[in-house]
């Protein structure tokens, strides 16, 4: 009896953790490209809110979550473009313009929600995708293969992002403009164009992460739906040392800790629940503090590129 409960707990923790990691993974992978190119986008939270809202709105009006998803991607694209305009072309201080983007995204999505929806309503979401054979494997099947397809996509994007970043010419350019923009410029790479592209990729993925919250997870929209998840995604990029696999590890660690605390609470183990709620945050800090090793940062991170002023 005890054994069954323990096994059930383990399966439960893993299954929930895998699902919870999805929005962090999507947003952090996008942010990784932006930061690799040298732009620090703290406005991810705002982009996620806009993505979440438009995904909801269009699904609400059309009844088709795929239309909603598409519009989230478009909104993510536009928000990424806005951030690029402000931080690349106009060379604004990046941390602060990110906070501006966050407030703008939160405000605008809240405003449009009031104007065009005006009340909490649920929408049809994406159901779980049943994978033949895989979903039917006893025990593991329900953990890894009982989610909607955005979850799989997020995990699939990890190797894809790795490949794009390290094995394609574009990835090379992104890394070059993020570490030695002057040298890249000398070689004829348009630093600002690459940064625009990277920020837009980041925006689209953040839009998708937002859409996952409304279409994939909650199937509804409410004010401040992201509740700080975008900021955590930014932190996870640092945690993952700007590497897709590191980001995967960080997202999973954070989400597993979160899933664990949910299960511990639900199973009725009594201790102050605040301790449980802070568990993922503490775990992440501790994991980073003890993992002493190679520390590398995109050298040009946060530095607007200026042809005139080298060095």
């Amino acid at each position: 009896m005890e054994h069954i409960i323990q096994q059930g707990l383990l399966v439960g923790v893993l299954a929930t953790g895998v699902r919870l990691a999805t929005p962090f993974l999507l947003a952090a992978l996008g942010e990784m490209f932006a930061q690799r190119s040298g732009v620090f986008n703290l406005g991810i939270e705002g982009i996620m809110m806009m993505g979440a809202f438009f995904g909801f709105l269009v699904t609400f009006f059309t009844g088709n979550p795929y239309f909603g998803l598409g519009s989230s991607l478009i909104v993510g694209f536009l928000m990424g473009l806005l951030m690029a305009l402000v931080s690349v072309t106009l060379k604004a201080e990046q941390g602060i313009s990110g906070i501006g983007l966050y407030m703008f995204g939160w405000g605008l999505s809240g405003l449009l929600f009031r104007l065009y929806v005006g009340g909490i309503t649920s929408i049809p979401g994406l159901g779980p995708l049943h994978l033949p054979v895989l979903s039917d494997i006893p025990h593991i099947g329900s953990i890894l293969f009982n989610h909607n397809w955005i979850v799989y996509l997020a995990y699939l994007l990890v190797p894809v992002a790795w490949f794009v970043l390290f094995k394609t010419p574009w990835g090379l350019r992104v890394r070059a403009v993020g570490t030695t923009p002057e040298a890249a410029d000398t070689l004829g790479v348009s630093v600002n164009a690459v940064r625009y592209q990277a920020l837009i990729v980041g925006g689209v993925l953040a839009g998708l992460a937002g859409a996952y919250l409304t279409i994939g997870q909650a199937n509804m929209y409410a004010d401040n739906i992201t509740a700080g998840r975008g900021f955590i995604a930014v932190a996870l990029v640092y945690f993952g040392r700007w590497n897709p696999w590191g980001i995967l590890a960080g997202s999973l660690l954070f989400s597993m800790a979160d899933s664990f605390q949910l299960w511990v609470q639900v199973m009725g183990i009594t201790f102050p629940y605040e301790l449980a709620v802070v568990l993922p945050y503490v775990t992440t800090i501790l994991a980073l503090a003890v993992s002493v090793g190679r520390v590398w940062t995109p050298a040009a991170l946060g530095r607007p590129f200026d042809r005139g002023s080298r060095g």
Partner: peptide
């Protein structure tokens, strides 16, 4: 709606840093 307040503050920050 109160959300408007937030949107305008965000715009002000974006324009001023730009």
């Amino acid at each position: 709606p109160a959300a408007m307040v937030m949107a305008i503050q965000g715009l002000v920050i974006l324009f001023v840093v730009s």
